[in-house]
Amino acid sequence: MTKKILMIGATSAIAEATTRLFAQRGDTLYLLGRDMERLSLLTQDLKIHGAANVEYTFFEANDLVDHQNVLDKAVQALQHIDVVVIAYGRLSHQKNAEQNVEATIDALHTNLMSVVSLLTLLANQLQKQGNGTLAVISSVAGDRGRQSNYIYGTAKGALSIFLQGLRQRLFKSNVHVLTIKPGFVDTPMTADFNKGLLWTTPEKVARGIIKAIDNKEHVVYLPRFWRYIMFVIKAIPEAIFVRLKL
């Protein structure tokens, strides 16, 4: 059976790859994002891949006041929402943020506060429906604070905890909450990194997301071996951890 999907942050590489898989199943898609040119290009692409219908509208994550309005448009277009994927994020420059309170707060606002705002509104919508999936991209960076990116990590860590609570709350309403923790993914956000063995592609992460949604999983590391890496990283005693370069 085809589904109705709301993609928030639809132009992120992981979102795009996931959306293509939905399109290949013949699903109906509603896309939210900032770059209207990319959204329009993506819409053509998804229709070619087999989407039943694709619509899109402008969405600015940091404009919290507008969230309800944008979601209303999506609900009106889709009527019923089977799956919501929240996929945007901004990898802030850790070194800048360390010297600049405003940059730190901005990063937390985009990666955490705006997502919390959306989830609060969407949770009530899906609870009212009595079904549906909220799939949210968090990060392995949220599992333990590290000097190289703890501001991004803070936002993702808090987001993971928010999702934990929400999952428990919505469980009895038959609403599925999925926390997705990708490892290193080769996307425009990380285009100028030198890539090693641990890196994966958005397409592989996307296949994992679809599977986790279909199987109603709660928390998924993608690729799955990251579960073990993070298990080890979390297990290192703080007294040793502070001395590491990680």
């Binding site: 990319r38 290009l41 100028d192 030198n194």
Partner: peptide, 26 residues
């Protein structure tokens, strides 16, 4: 970033000037 062609020879430290998603971005 360190780049090379498929032959891994030669290698070059290059700057990624742009990785556009749309013609307008470029």
């Amino acid at each position: 970033m360190h780049l090379s062609g498929w032959g891994q020879y030669p290698k070059k430290d290059s700057q990624l000037f742009s990785a556009p998603q749309t013609p307008t971005q470029l």
